[in-house]
Nucleic acid binder design. Structure first.
Lengths: 209, 209
DNA sequence: TTGCTATTCCAGTAATTTCTGGAATTTCAA
DNA sequence: TTGAAATTCCAGAAATTACTGGAATAGCAA
């Protein structure tokens, strides 16, 4: 396999972006190459295409495997291991989100929890703890949300994303539903504040925002 | 100001986490310190507390200012500049999301767009372009969504997040609404696939998932 | 303007991270 | 079990990034 100017441009950009995140350039480039490759590639071929040493590629692939972002497969008649990315891009997003939660968010949340539990040694500590609690609660809220929507099937998820902020119109609507609907919703999500609930009838403009 | 064990633990952890992202440890620690500090701090005090050189702190503060994550203020009777973080944590999230979009996502999207526009030089290019298009469309969808919900006021946003995946129940509901509601929703969001629309009546279990 | 204080810039140094080649290990077919 | 091929590990080299002290600049009160 040979790099075309097009694939090369993508690989270089992706490597740069990777290095702005935690990922190093090599790993980013390897991933980018596999992402646009039509077939699974063996490590020595990756090394040759990208001009890295064989062992560097091995390291990078191990890293990507630990993130569950590349799969290993054996092709008949070839003893070498071949690597490829996940085919379904939504699956990639789900895996990435899960791994980031597991590696970065969860440890942070538990550090925050521990610190919030401690007996404050001073007024400064007491203030710091309120700030840490704010941060903890916010991260937890966002993470619960992301775990939750991640379980949706892709079609629903896409519909939800496309709806964007207009979804609050539906929330308004929900608050106006007959009691049977509201009772269920509240039983399932007790913490949701539900300050004013209007009448059950509905006018067109009330669907706005 | 003196670091207590509690604030020190937080600052150290935050610094480590920062260095897993693009942010370097120093910058992460400065931000963490300001985040838990009850009052705005001048640069020399930050340097003393964290044990960094004065110029390093200056660099870090400049970086944080460029992210709009710290504010500068002058206190009466003191010529030094004092720095503090944003008080409203939701505001912090909004600013962070905006800056990440501006610095990392937008440039990536435009690279992807350019590459997708190019005339493919080979079959491999053609395949690569379909993959790049998938990536482009996915990132754009998620970014549009995030821009959009970012405009919501905080109470609505929190309600939305707490609802999590159960929001699809509302989507189902929407699809069952009398025509006046559906017509509006479709006019506002034409690309949203809306395959089956049921009758306008509603049974309790149809609110599930 | 002058003098004082605060801030930023810069070049050199230190620390960290990345990368390499070769040695050791593993895997698998015969 | 053996040997050939593939993979991983590791210690040192290279490259990158972070940090420092001091010099230059800017800001402000007198």
């Amino acid at each position: 396999m040979q790099l075309t100017p097009l694939t090369e441009a993508f690989i270089l950009h992706f490597g740069e972006m990777g290095s702005r995140w935690g990922i190093n350039r090599t790993v980013g480039q390897i991933y980018a190459l596999l992402y646009v490759a039509e077939r699974a590639l063996p490590a020595d071929e990756i090394a040759e295409i990208l001009g890295f040493s064989r062992s560097n590629v091995s390291l990078g692939l191990k890293e990507l495997q630990s993130w569950r972002l590349v799969r290993l497969q054996h092709l008949p008649g070839d003893r070498r291991e071949h690597f490829s990315t996940l085919g379904d891009i939504w699956q990639i997003v789900r895996v990435l989100a899960e791994e980031r939660r597991r590696r970065e968010i969860d440890p942070t949340l538990s550090v925050l929890r521990e610190l919030i539990m401690e007996t404050p040694g001073s007024e400064a500590d007491r203030y710091a703890q309120t700030r840490l609690r704010e941060m903890h609660d916010l991260i937890e809220l966002i993470m619960r949300w992301s775990e939750d929507v991640q379980k949706l099937d892709t079609a629903d998820l896409v519909q939800l994303l496309k709806l964007g902020g207009r979804v609050v119109a539906l929330l308004e609507l929900k608050n106006r539903l007959p009691l049977i609907g509201r009772a269920r919703a509240q039983r399932e999500a007790p913490p949701v504040a539900d300050p004013q609930s209007g009448p059950a009838d509905m006018h067109e403009q009330e669907l706005e925002t």
